[in-house]
Computed example of a mutant assay.
Amino acid sequence: MRPLFYEFQNDDKVWDMKDEYLYGPDLLVAPILNEGAVSREVYLPEGSNWTDARTGSIFEGGQTIHVEAPLSEIPVFLRDGKQENLIGKI
């Protein structure tokens, strides 16, 4: 586990981010931290495209998106399509 700024040092928005992390260099994890929440905002660092590991939807980095996050599913995004065999299994 590592903070986002380890991989995205040129993206100013990630330096103060405390509610997302990377698992290795290519998996962005955005856990739910607020009781009762079923969705959340996720910032996807710029310089990469991000694939939602649950749905396969691809997003350009450098933006904040809103994702559904029921209790049974943690939002996870794959950097630049890495490990595509994980889509739908996380």
Rank of each mutant, 00 (worst) to 15 (best):
S72G: 06
P31E: 10
Y6I: 11
D16V: 08
Y43L: 07
K18A: 13
L71R: 12
P70L: 12
D19N: 15
N10C: 00
L4M: 09
P75H: 01
V67N: 02
L71N: 11
V38N: 15
L78T: 09
S39E: 15
S57M: 13
I74C: 15
F5M: 04
G24Y: 03
Q9F: 10
I74F: 11
D11I: 01
D19I: 10
E35G: 11
F8D: 06
L33P: 00
G56Y: 03
N10A: 10
S48Y: 07
I74V: 15
F77V: 04
G88T: 13
Y23P: 00
I58F: 02
K13V: 03
T51W: 02
G56F: 04
I65A: 06
R79T: 01
Y21P: 01
Y43V: 07
N10P: 00
K18C: 08
E35A: 14
E68V: 08
M1T: 13
G62T: 06
V14Y: 09
E7M: 07
D19S: 12
K82L: 00
F8N: 05
Y43F: 09
N34H: 11
L33N: 11
R2M: 14
A37P: 03
E35D: 15
M17I: 15
L22V: 02
N10I: 00
L27N: 04
S39V: 01
P45H: 07
F77M: 07
A37V: 07
S57G: 01
E20R: 05
L33E: 14
F8T: 07
S57P: 00
E73Y: 15
D19P: 01
M17Y: 04
L28R: 05
L22C: 05
